[in-house]
């Protein structure tokens, strides 16, 4: 049992400011940005969709520590590969709106603290009570020079297995020596083992197929936003035939400890890299799914629900072990056809 901390060097922090920032984000993302105003919610995971409902980009939106709704300022961290996209996207939709985006890639960083067993006790997305650390972490003088207002830390709003997320100026956080330092790759393997997809791997997929409706990424009662028509239709239709679950390549799951939320010890440095988009075949050669992403021996697969578990499966000649993360098996109820009903 151990705690980990990783610098998410693959994320780029942006700051969005202007009095129309809330309205703008409300109109182009899947999550309900008003929650920042009406509650203590400090972080929201949201998707940027195209008008047809496909994912263009995903991002973690968080409010700054001294949030003022008349002059809202948000952090948006997206995958580095989406940096240019986000800038162009915001610029396009900020038509006649007061909202500007600045990239703080050079000055700010994202860190995640997580563990295979310990779960943060606070509700997902709410701010951690780290006030006593506030003073030490960011000296007041630095605030003006960096044009940022302190740092922000919150429990990952997607799922508490992902631990807490901190957005701060570079090199200001001191880490307890009991916490093991890891890199972004390790965090990503951890995230994949939890069945959560992120970054460029999500592009062009339908949010429901990547479990995003279960990851607090979509608000179903916020009103219109870009891509809402498809999302609402998929959700009210109520039946899903595909699901995204993690796999471990070339490994047996016999000593797999079910009590671990995320069996990160199975992450190896051996390279079994399976290509993204590779078909997943069962022993008879029938296609049952597709590899969404892969990092060393761990990856995510989008598969047909009825035929995914307890079978020998292959992709690109490598044998795969698919399993359902604990939190996901708690949420889903199977019906007779093997399809999953969305609880409306």
């Amino acid at each position: 049992m151990s705690g980990f901390m990783a610098k998410l060097t693959d994320r780029a922090v942006h700051i969005l400011e202007g009095k129309d920032a809330i309205k703008l984000l409300q109109g182009i993302t899947t999550n309900d940005i008003e929650k920042f105003v009406s509650s203590s919610q400090a972080g929201l995971f949201a998707l940027f969709l195209d008008p047809k409902g496909r994912i263009l980009c995903d991002g973690m939106i968080s409010k700054i520590s001294q949030f003022d709704k008349t002059k809202p300022v948000f952090f948006i961290d997206v995958h580095k590969a989406h940096k240019e996209f986000l800038e162009a996207h915001i610029q396009r939709y900020a038509f006649r709106k007061d909202a500007t985006l600045h990239c703080l890639d050079e000055d700010m960083e994202v860190q995640a603290t997580f563990s295979e067993i310990i779960l943060p006790e606070e509700k997902e997305g709410t701010r951690q009570k780290w006030e006593d650390l506030d003073e030490q972490l960011l000296p007041k003088d630095d605030e003006d020079t960096l044009n940022i207002h302190g740092y922000t830390a919150f429990v990952d709003p997607r799922n508490k297995v992902l631990g807490t997320r901190t957005i701060s100026a570079k090199e200001v956080l001191e880490i307890d020596e009991n916490i093991i330092k890891k890199d972004a790759n390790f965090y990503n393997a951890f995230r994949m083992l939890a069945g959560i997809c992120e970054g460029p791997d999500t592009v062009n997929h339908i949010p429901h197929m990547l479990n995003f409706h279960l990851l607090n990424a979509i608000s179903f009662n916020k009103g219109c936003y870009v891509g809402q028509e498809l999302i609402a239709r998929t959700h009210t239709q109520g039946i899903l035939r595909t699901i995204t679950i993690p796999f471990i390549a070339n490994s047996n799951l016999e000593n797999f400890d079910q009590s671990l939320f995320v069996p990160i010890s199975l992450y190896e440095s051996n390279d079994y890299m399976v290509k993204q988009g590779e078909k997943i075949l069962d022993i008879e050669g029938k296609t049952i799914g597709q590899v969404i992403s892969c990092n060393k021996n761990i990856g995510l697969a989008k598969v047909k629900i009825e035929s995914s578990e307890g079978k020998a499966l292959f992709a690109d000649g490598v044998s795969l072990n698919l399993f359902k993360p604990l939190w996901l098996s708690e949420v889903y109820s199977d019906d007779k056809d093997g399809n999953r009903r969305i609880e409306n």
């Binding site: 409300q26 900020a94 936003y225 870009v226």
Partner: peptide, 12 residues
């Protein structure tokens, strides 16, 4: 008639 960005299902 005005066109507003970031609003509605289409974005504008």
């Amino acid at each position: 008639l005005t066109v507003e960005g970031g609003a509605g299902c289409g974005g504008f």
